[in-house]
């Protein structure tokens, strides 16, 4: 393991299931956290569909990996930014999005998801060492 800590931001722009990018990106996110890096995730454009509620893959035969997002908090990944405009453009609100949480140092349950505007997102990206989008 390296002593250097870098700020990794994973920008998810694609819907899940139609392509494998969302699933395989999540695997990179988990490994990056295992390297004790500063990890944050962005859900924008069709990426917001990755964390939509009530995903049911029973009849499609696809592997349902939506529960993996719920486990992110256990890996200390608790900076999940959802772009407000992307939700609005798709007729969605936070009610359509999974309730993702983490436990803080006092074991209090806190929300991991933060709604941000497009302009705020631009600032957040600008502040990273690495921005990896898929």
């Amino acid at each position: 393991m390296s002593e250097a800590i870098k700020k990794f931001m994973f920008v998810n722009t694609k819907a899940p299931y139609g392509t494998v990018y969302a699933l395989e990106s999540l695997e990179v996110v988990l490994i990056t956290a295992a390297f004790d890096q500063d990890v944050s995730l962005v859900f924008c454009d069709d990426g917001v569909f990755q964390i939509s509620n009530n995903q049911n893959t029973e009849a499609s035969g696809m592997k349902n990996f939506s529960n993996a997002y719920k486990a992110l908090g256990d890996y200390d990944i608790n900076k999940l930014y959802v772009e407000k405009e992307s939700l609005e453009e798709r007729g969605l609100t936070l009610d359509n999005i999974m309730d993702l949480t983490y436990e803080d140092d006092d074991w209090a349950e806190k929300p991991s998801i933060k709604l941000v505007t497009r302009a705020e997102l631009a600032d957040l990206m600008d502040d990273q060492d690495l921005v990896i989008s898929s």
Binding site: S2, E27, I31, A34, S134
Partner: peptide, 20 residues
């Protein structure tokens, strides 16, 4: 090798460039 090689590569390098 494992995905750890990607993360380690990203940490050690000055720049990571994605081609997709």
């Amino acid at each position: 090798s494992g995905l750890g090689q990607l993360v380690e590569g990203a940490i050690q390098a000055d720049r990571l460039i994605t081609f997709g």
